[in-house]
Design a protein around this nucleic acid. Structure first.
Lengths: 350, 350
DNA sequence: CTTTAGCACTCATTGCCCCTGAGTGCTAAG
DNA sequence: CTTAGCACTCAGGGGCAATGAGTGCTAAAG
């Protein structure tokens, strides 16, 4: 079913205005807008129909209209104008991105913070995987007296390490052997393939270092599992309180307590591979607690079978055009930054 | 100046009750308590004096009294009874601690979450250093085509790594040399001692890998600096909204937006080395924005010149006894866990 | 000299009522 | 189909009085 040109125009005007003011919009206000060549009465009729069609809602009889979730959806899909980033904005985003991201985890937490700042809403950044991750290589590095560092490198380029201390003395030869055995048998296979039989066999072939194999395996499995389970960085929760819809404390708390890592990592049930930015309006969220909030997500390439995702959580009445624009501009920048191999920079002294 | 026995008893009763109810306490309520063998009038007189002495405050004329910061301080130092953890509590804390903390950063974020849960307040966990950190060793590990992984181990046992990609091809020999040079000249010295002259000398002696030295140095310095700058994990901000004193939205926002990593890492200006748990009541906090909140901090040993700190942020009216007890019990557990060398566990199959 | 009963006073909170005004839906005329 | 006109609805706010918890002071009792 198609909306008449005029209905669309009115709907757009209402959503635009409501996004700006957070107050129900009345017929008179709309009629007063330049470019609206109808009387309030006409607008009223149209608004009544839009309400019947489910695009608008009325908080109470004597109030104006506000967009319903379906209204927002229609607006997003059909009416919303692209938001053009101003030079100032692009500059400040670029500048923010200047942070040299040295380590990955840290960087992601910073990314989250920046997104939150950029949108003035709670934001999250997380990593996720597109392929199943395997161990690429083990390294065993002696580290003082009776301890060594186990380094596990995975196919998604994360490198995790653990300091292992032992009460018994271990020789360099033991460690060499351990390393060799681990690399020979346990690399390039996914966590599921770490069967008890395999581990048993490996353990037996490790000689003096056999006691260390289970520890190493435990750690490797743990690393792989943690790779799969995305890491989530959430920040800027307090910005939610700035939004008029969350002046009601209980609402705010409901949303904030729902915003933990688990819900977030499950947020966008399916990522539409076609559109880069995905918007979930209110009840489109699977999580019940978020049925009054909207989520805008986008992803960026990190390369090596991984992707980053950044998202924003806010009231249904959010400036989708602006937020989408900022988010995707930022994500593009990040993609450029992470996705491509890093060029060695020209150093002063060379 | 000493408070009479009776004044102390009354003050304690008021603070105890106010902590429980969050409502100003009147003379009649106190008088009605068993063990209070005085009339309301007497209590009133005492309360008036306690107010003059600065231990109590009156929100308005016709309301009861609430403790002033000084009142809380006196209560904490002199009146508060030790809170005895119930078996249930110790059990659930122990259970929570069962999480096998495989990697340090992750573990700290989990610790933060647990503390928040444990106290039902926003909480933070962070690491900090007691000695100046140095690089203990560099490791250079080839990682595919035109890239390698640089591992920096520091004297505080953190191990950080970075994947470095290069457009040019590098041989294993180059990397060996790089590793040797770095380890020969740049270990066991602190970041300040990375002078341009030294770096220049090292670069020249690195032969074919000379282009990589600045990158490695940059990373090393970055790691050392990050070691010094404590890492902070803050969680459970939403729990602040559950507290009656933060029903006022603006207050809540003020506090929450003040709670970023910077303010937190500066929170306890000086840590009294004698008492394990440190309490900062309201205005005792240096940060202006936190002058209405209290902070309870404790630390635990991680060994190797490092310590962990866990803390709780909440309204001045918080159950200091309970929170102190839970926090320190938890911290002790963590100390036991992190501080001591890890014993290899008995595996099933051995 | 301390304790307590009595009393007048204060003042935040609550509920109530009424008014205002923005906004609607309907009807009938253009 | 559009619009002017009109009666109606209802949230929000101001004013006002009642309520009651709590106080400080005074004077009597212990």
């Amino acid at each position: 079913m198609e909306l008449s040109e005029r209905k669309q125009k009115i709907l757009k005007a209402i959503v635009d205005l409501y996004i700006r003011t957070a107050e129900p919009v009345g017929s008179k206000t709309i009629a007063a807008m330049p470019d609206m060549d109808f009387s309030p009465a006409t607008i009223r009729n149209e608004m009544a129909e839009l309400t019947n069609l489910g695009f608008l809602e009325q908080p109470h009889t004597s109030a104006g209209r506000i967009p319903s979730p379906a209204g927002y959806r229609f607006y997003i899909d059909r009416l919303m104008q692209d938001y053009r980033l101003s030079v100032d904005e692009t500059q400040s985003i670029n500048q923010a991105m200047e942070l040299r991201m040295q380590e990955f985890d840290r960087a992601m937490s910073k990314v989250g913070k920046l997104v939150s700042q950029l949108t003035n809403l709670p934001a999250y950044a997380m990593t996720s995987h597109t392929e199943s991750v395997k161990v690429r290589r083990f390294e065993v590095l002696p580290a003082g007296e009776a301890s060594f560092i186990l380094v596990v490198m995975t196919t998604d380029e994360t490198v995790k390490n653990k300091l292992i201390k032992l009460p018994l003395h271990i020789t360099e030869a033991d460690l060499k052997l351990l390393s060799a055995v681990l690399n020979a048998s346990l690399t390039e296979i996914s966590a599921e393939q770490f069967t008890p039989e395999l581990i048993d066999r490996v353990t037996r072939s490790a000689g003096a270092a056999s006691g260390l194999v289970p520890i190493a395996v435990d750690f490797a499995v743990h690393v792989l599992e943690n790779c799969r389970r995305a890491e989530v960085y959430l920040t800027g929760q307090n910005r939610l309180l700035g939004q008029p819809e969350y002046q009601d404390l209980t609402r705010a708390q409901e949303v904030l307590s729902a915003l933990d890592e688990d819900t977030i990592s499950n947020l966008p049930a399916k990522l539409d591979p076609n559109s880069p930015v995905q918007i979930l309006v209110g009840p489109e969220n699977v999580a019940q607690e978020l049925k009054n909030t909207s989520v805008v997500v986008t992803r960026f390439d990190i390369g090596e079978g991984m992707q980053g995702m950044i998202g924003v959580v806010g009231p249904q009445r959010m400036d989708y055009a602006q937020i989408t624009a900022r988010l995707s501009y930022f994500a593009e920048g990040l993609g450029r930054m992470f996705g491509k191999p890093e060029l060695p920079e020209a150093k002063k002294e060379e």
